[in-house]
Design a protein around this nucleic acid. Structure first.
Length: 476
DNA sequence: CTGGGGACGGGGCCC
DNA sequence: GGGGCCCCGTCCCCA
């Protein structure tokens, strides 16, 4: 007896009943469009509905009606289809809104799949050596469109994979329970005006990108608007190309890898794109480069012809797929993408704080840990080693003039910061744990050879001090 | 409560 | 393309 297909058939039956409006006891009104569903199915699929239906459980005999205005009917259609089929039709155009809606509805597995879709589309995550799922053009047919399946996955779910292949997409399988998303990336940028929540809490959020809960609290328009606009030139991508063999193999690999890596991946950085992405949007990006691989993996990042203008003689600008921002250079786009991915490849060895750029790290280190500013922190007057001293306060260093030292009662304290006395770094466990970034296959965080190993150089004379620079042993 | 300053993020652009 | 510099905007802290 084939037990493994039982739940599949059961789900198909329920889906059939839903489509025929049989035994539906829950009405969901989205943007004026009425959806019928079974409350027990919704209850089991969504934390939101679980709460909603729990509160209205006394009225079991009466149909429950829920109204949503925070996402579109199309989005809810995709989600409802997923609930009743385990297959999630994702594309670059709907993934953000689906993820946002899933966050609102507290459907963690859907969020996971969306997150993986985005991550794979970005292809920033290091291509796993043993074949971790990556949505390259080759996989997705240069369209960023895939058919994901999550949940209800049997141990050997060839049915889904096969169906996905038939749909021209591919399958991402999950086993229940899906891992809890701990972090998501911020799909905002300076130019797609950040929601008030993000702007107000940016500093607090920076070490940890948005959580699903926080995303759900964000205005949907901010999530959707930029994305939708950015995907406008993705018309040709609507046709999901097929690659059955790849789809199946990817699905199989993903099924085994996704669950164990998902949580980790969320807290990891998204290192640079893989080296072996093959096909791409050759019409737009004929050159093969590291950045191209990223763009190929996210085919909506394309050169956008904006025409010639007085201010900009360059006929092509590169458009961010997550916001309306365009840049002249691909390298600038690559840099810009970090503000969406949350990638922070440059950790401060002193305090663990991570930065998107080496220059930011350098500035931070010089300012915070190297007492690089030759001004008295207290009176703001210029200070030299002759007129003041360096004070070490934890991992912070700053300068005080002799006057302020006296006033602070620190004039008799010995501050002997010789060259042989490096900044005392906090234990690894106490440092801020953020992204663990890999580049060129080298572990950075917690490894013996970090990418940017900052070495403190304390000098005596100003002349030497001016020469004192942060030494980035590797990567510089 | 408010204004100033520090720290930081991000864009433009040069080398 | 990467590194770096400059500039500006935002947020937070503190007086």
């Amino acid at each position: 007896m084939d037990f493994s297909s039982h739940h599949t058939r059961l789900l198909q039956q329920l889906d059939d009943q839903r489509r025929r409006d049989l035994f539906c006891d829950c009405n969901i009104l989205v943007e004026g469009k009425m959806f019928k569903a079974h409350r027990n199915v919704l209850f089991a699929s969504s934390g939101y509905f679980k709460m909603l239906l729990s509160q209205s459980c006394k009225d079991v005999g009466q149909p429950t009606t829920a109204t949503f205005d925070v996402f579109s009917a199309d989005t809810f259609t995709a989600i409802l289809d997923y609930v009743y089929s385990g297959k999630l039709p994702l594309s670059g155009q709907n993934v953000i809104e689906v993820m946002s809606a899933a966050s609102y509805l507290q459907m963690t597995d859907v969020i996971n799949v969306c997150k993986m879709f985005i991550k794979s589309s970005l292809d920033i995550n290091e291509k796993d050596k043993d074949g971790f799922f990556s949505l390259s053009d080759k996989d997705s047919g240069s369209n960023g469109c895939g058919l994901y399946a999550a949940g209800w996955r049997s141990e050997n779910s060839p049915t889904h994979a096969h169906e996905a292949a038939e749909h021209g997409g591919f399958i991402a399988g999950y086993n229940y329970p899906p891992p809890i998303i701990s972090r998501l990336q911020r799909p905002f940028s300076k130019h797609s005006r950040k929601p008030e929540y993000v702007r107000k809490h940016r500093r607090r959020l920076m070490p940890e990108p948005l959580t699903p809960a926080s995303i759900s609290s964000l205005p949907l328009g901010d999530l959707v608007g930029g994305s939708a606009e950015c995907m406008m030139h993705d018309e040709e991508s609507r046709d999901c190309a097929t690659n059955e063999e790849e789809s199946s193999s990817q699905a199989a690999r993903l099924g085994s890898k996704a669950e164990e890596e998902d949580e980790e991946a969320l807290t990891h950085s998204w290192p640079d794109s893989p080296q072996n992405v093959e096909s791409g949007d050759q019409d737009v990006m004929p050159q093969i480069s590291k950045a191209d691989e990223l763009y190929k993996a996210m085919p909506t990042i394309l050169g956008v012809s904006t025409g010639w203008s007085e201010d900009d003689l360059s006929p092509v600008r590169f458009k961010c797929p997550f916001c309306t921002h365009t840049v002249k250079r691909k390298a600038d786009l690559k840099r810009h993408l970090r503000c969406h991915t949350g990638e922070r490849p440059y950790p401060c060895e002193a305090c663990g704080k991570r930065f998107t750029r080496l220059e930011h790290l350098r500035n931070h280190f010089q300012t915070i840990h190297e007492a690089g500013k030759l001004i008295c922190r207290r009176c703001k007057l210029p200070v030299t080693n002759m007129t003041g001293r360096v004070i070490q306060d934890g991992t912070r260093r700053y300068r005080l003039c002799h006057t302020c030292l006296t006033e602070a009662g620190l004039d008799n304290v010995s501050f002997d910061f010789g060259d042989d006395q490096p900044l005392v770094l906090p234990p690894e466990s106490e440092r801020e744990q953020g992204w663990s970034f890999k580049e060129d296959g080298r572990e950075e965080n917690g490894s013996d050879q970090p990418e940017s190993d900052l070495v403190m150089h304390t000098v005596d004379s100003e002349e030497e001090e001016s020469k004192s620079k942060i030494k980035c042993v590797a990567g510089m």
